[in-house]
Design a protein around this nucleic acid. Structure first.
Lengths: 133, 133
DNA sequence: ATTTTTGTTAAGAATTATTCTAATGAAGAG
DNA sequence: CTCTTCATTAGAATAATTCTTAACAAAAAT
């Protein structure tokens, strides 16, 4: 619960609400998703606070900013290296916590220090497939 | 050269210029990069034309819209399935035209029809590493 | 060779996502 | 209590992209 303290920034009610909203959330919400969900509880909550907090958390490595949806940034509280499955139709994003071995040849490593990788699988989720692609 | 005809849309001078600018271009330019480069030759060129054309080409499958840079869309004339290497620092994107075998377990395939995948390798390019990360 | 249709362009307005700014406020240090 | 620091808010500003509209040009139909 209050393992949040170790993040090392001031825990305000707004920030706690954002953290709670993110905790275990596998829906990869955008800033707006979070804002919309939170303003019920905090009608005075500002967009800037959501952006500031998400930015602070990203810089502290507590969450990941994911760049899959061309329309907006999305955030993922799961900071373990993992991959994603994206529905081309509804843009739903599903976590794939499997470790794939993809090794890039030496010739690339000579000009680039590789620090990690991320695989996006794309396709059609069952719901969208039913409705016809 | 005029294999462009088969694309099946009207080939105007502006569109030809955009196509030429893209042809064999491995720099993954953004709409603005293209616009800036083209308005020298076509001072009357409008941003809207660049966006419309990129959009039309994307829908026709002639180019790919790539969603790696959180700030803007970038375009890639290489429509063969391939992967990318991104420098965390300067955001340079390099093509990796290697076929990796990444097979996702059956349990994912049951709820998702997988149509493809894209691997992003991220790290530091030589130049940025020299300057110190 | 006109007319009609269809699709393209340019300019700028509009929209959307995000960042910045300035004023205010709360919490902790002294 | 007063000072300092950092967070919050509202709203302005910015940046990327999309939309709208009018003028236009090529192709198709007459």
């Amino acid at each position: 619960m209050k393992r949040y303290r170790k993040i090392g920034f001031k825990l305000t009610p707004q920030r706690l609400a954002i953290l709670d909203c993110l905790e275990g959330n596998t829906s990869h919400p955008s800033a707006e998703d979070i804002y919309r969900r939170l303003k019920k509880k905090f009608p005075t909550m500002s967009f800037a606070t959501v952006y500031n907090t998400l930015d602070a958390l990203t810089r502290k490595g507590e969450i990941l900013e994911i760049t899959i949806d061309p329309e907006r940034k999305r955030y993922d509280p799961n900071t373990q290296p993992h991959h994603h499955l994206i529905c081309n139709k509804c843009k739903k994003i599903v976590d794939v916590t499997i470790n794939f071995k993809v090794t890039i040849p030496e010739r690339f490593r000579r000009s680039f220090e590789i620090l990690g990788n991320h695989i996006e699988f794309y396709g059609l989720c069952r719901e969208c497939k039913k409705k016809g692609g």
